[in-house]
Design a protein around this nucleic acid. Structure first.
Length: 108
DNA sequence: AACTTGACGTGAC
DNA sequence: AGTCACGCCAAGT
């Protein structure tokens, strides 16, 4: 089991309309330790069946925007199609869409 | 096989 | 609140 497959496995479990931070993905990976940065490194070559758009920075920023504005626009489009909302500064509303496995932390 | 480079996150100024 | 430095380690060169 490579770190790569483990990371993709976790990302594939993120529900539609929800997002997870790089660090969040890292924490959910079992068996092998991976850092948030490693998740990012691995996401750079994500296969088409992985919902890469659902992984954002902890504060909701679309990190890809730092390198590719075009991809950022694409990510934003895909998320919008899933019903994910953005705040005025262009970041995902983490208070509404951050995903916590097995039940939301904001429950209640 | 050695060296560099980051889709990050955190803490110190 | 905005930099800056750095740990982390898979991939690319």
């Amino acid at each position: 089991m490579s770190a790569r497959d483990a990371v993709y496995g976790v990302v594939r479990t993120i529900p539609r309309g929800k997002v997870l931070s790089y660090g969040g993905v890292a924490e959910l990976v079992e068996g092998v330790y991976v850092s948030a940065r490693t998740v990012g490194r691995i996401m750079a070559s994500a296969p088409p069946d992985v919902p890469w758009q659902r992984v954002v920075a902890r504060d909701g920023e679309l990190v890809i925007a730092r390198r590719s504005p075009l991809m950022a626009a694409e990510q934003r489009r895909l998320l919008a199609l899933e019903g994910v909302g953005f705040s005025s500064d262009g970041r995902v509303r983490m208070d509404e869409h951050a995903w916590a496995p097995g039940g939301t932390l904001f429950s209640e």
